[in-house]
Nucleic acid binder design. Sequence first.
DNA 1: TTCATATTTCCAATTATATGGAAATATTAA
DNA 2: TTAATATTTCCATATAATTGGAAATATGAA
Lengths: 108, 108
Amino acid sequence: MKNKEAISVFLALGQETRLNIFRLTVQRGNIGVTPGEIVEILGIPNATLSFHLKELQHADLVLVERRSRNLIYRPNADLVKRISDFLLENCCGGKPCIPVAQTSKGKI
Amino acid sequence: MKNKEAISVFLALGQETRLNIFRLTVQRGNIGVTPGEIVEILGIPNATLSFHLKELQHADLVLVERRSRNLIYRPNADLVKRISDFLLENCCGGKPCIPVAQTSKGKI
DNA sequence: TTCATATTTCCAATTATATGGAAATATTAA
DNA sequence: TTAATATTTCCATATAATTGGAAATATGAA
């Protein structure tokens, strides 16, 4: 996980419509969801949806497959775990974490 | 975890400087880090840092404590786990996940 | 072909975010 | 007090993201 990669994920999820879209794909799982369904469910214009889906795709948060006339979007759930690991990387400089109680209100 | 809460976290982390600041606080753990140190380490102007620290604070990603003339910033590492749980909430509609291989390239 | 459905692209207007110098404020030591 | 250090606020400028209507493109059915 690189810094740039993580930023694109966070930027993608830091927007209400996109967060809703992503969470919807998670709820669908491998059944997936089409743009048409998303427009129905979330009530957003198709131009707006298309823009946001592309952002999610660029962040690699969703995977897309064409199936006849429809596109099917599915979540890249694995990425969520990798992101959370990235954020906690080298926690406490690699040493065992010192509980807050021992230091935060006492002497350091 | 509410939608708004999650968005503020993602918005906070979707910016290079803030992501670097947050990861630095994680690496420090409960020892914490002061704005002065952050300015030194990341090489950003203090006005810029102050702005970003406030964003991280508003997102509840960092906790702050005054210690004499210094402020000490520490990560709210717990929030990282809650965010990741939120993203995967009600995965596959609550039913056991169907592996991709069974559906994505076959008939649905 | 022709037609209907599904989705994307274009584009211009709006709104939001980031930057950093300079000045202001806060805290403590001497 | 006065001086030194630490941090924040102000503010104007610059940059980037969001929106959605209308038109264009893609796909497959009849």
